[in-house]
C-alpha cells in the first residue's frame, strides 16, 4: 500500500489551494468553492488516518460522513445568503459586502 504520508501531503496541498481560493477570490461563490476544497482535504485526512490506524472501527468514516453533512448545510445557507445579498446590492463581490462595517 501507499505510505500514509502520501495522503497527508495530498490533503495538505488541497487544503492550501482551498485556503488560497477562499482568501484571494473576489467572487463570493469562488470563496465558497475554496471552503469546499478545504473541507474535502479534511475528509481525505480523516479517511486516511482511519484506514492506516483503526481500520476495524469505522470512526474515521463516520466523522467524514458528518463533515459532508455539515458541508452540505453550509453550502445551502451560504448560497442562499449570496442570492439574498445579490438581490439587495446587485453584486457578489466580497469587497463590497461592507454594510456591517462600523
Amino acid at each position: 500500500m501507499v505510505p500514509l504520508w502520501y495522503y497527508l501531503v495530498l490533503a495538505a496541498a488541497l487544503f492550501c489551494i482551498g485556503a488560497f481560493g477562499a482568501l484571494a477570490r473576489k467572487n463570493a461563490v469562488g470563496v465558497l468553492m475554496g471552503v469546499e476544497l478545504m473541507l474535502n482535504a479534511v475528509n481525505i485526512n480523516l479517511v486516511a488516518f482511519w484506514r492506516y490506524t483503526t481500520a476495524a472501527q469505522l470512526t474515521g468514516q463516520l466523522f467524514a460522513v458528518f463533515v459532508i453533512t455539515v458541508a452540505a448545510a453550509e453550502a445551502a445557507v451560504g448560497l442562499a445568503l449570496f442570492i439574498a445579498i445579490y438581490r439587495q446590492r446587485n453584486t457578489v463581490n466580497v469587497e463590497e459586502f461592507d454594510t456591517m462595517k462600523g
Binding site: 461563490v29 458541508a71 452540505a72 445551502a76 445579490y86
Partner: peptide, 20 residues
Amino acid sequence: VYVGAIATLIIFAVMLTRQV
C-alpha cells in the same frame, strides 16, 4: 452529495448572480 447536490447548487448560484 458533492457532485449531485453541492456542485449543482453552486452552478445554480453562479447562474442566478449575473455579472460574475
